[in-house]
């Protein structure tokens, strides 16, 4: 059971959250201007790194806020949480 550090509510059990996949994948400003390949890239292609990963979480059973987190996909350690539309703080090496 992960303990997810909600930036508002503090650490809560994973079961209170919804996972939102990779962070910083913005909805294209003008989808109609996207080529089929660009649009497919937005829809379907995501990174899947072994190591630190910036991803989205939603505290659905708590404050219902979306936030971003930097988490290690091997150790599951959370290095940082931060607001949407902001850049990730320094990622541990």
């Amino acid at each position: 059971m992960l303990s997810v550090p909600c930036p508002w509510c503090g650490p809560r059990d994973e079961t209170e959250f919804r996972y939102g996949g990779q962070a910083h994948v913005a909805y294209p400003a003008d989808p109609a201007a996207c080529s089929d390949a660009e649009w497919a890239g937005y829809l379907f292609m995501r990174d899947n790194p072994k190591g630190w990963f910036a991803e989205r979480w939603f505290h659905s059973a708590g404050c219902r806020r979306w936030f971003n987190a930097v988490r290690h996909t091997v150790t599951y350690e959370f290095a940082a949480v931060y607001a949407p539309f902001t850049q990730p703080p320094g990622v541990p090496s």
Partner: peptide, 8 residues
């Protein structure tokens, strides 16, 4: 709805 309002 919350996802689009908050994240986009």
């Amino acid at each position: 709805l919350d996802e689009w309002l908050q994240t986009e």
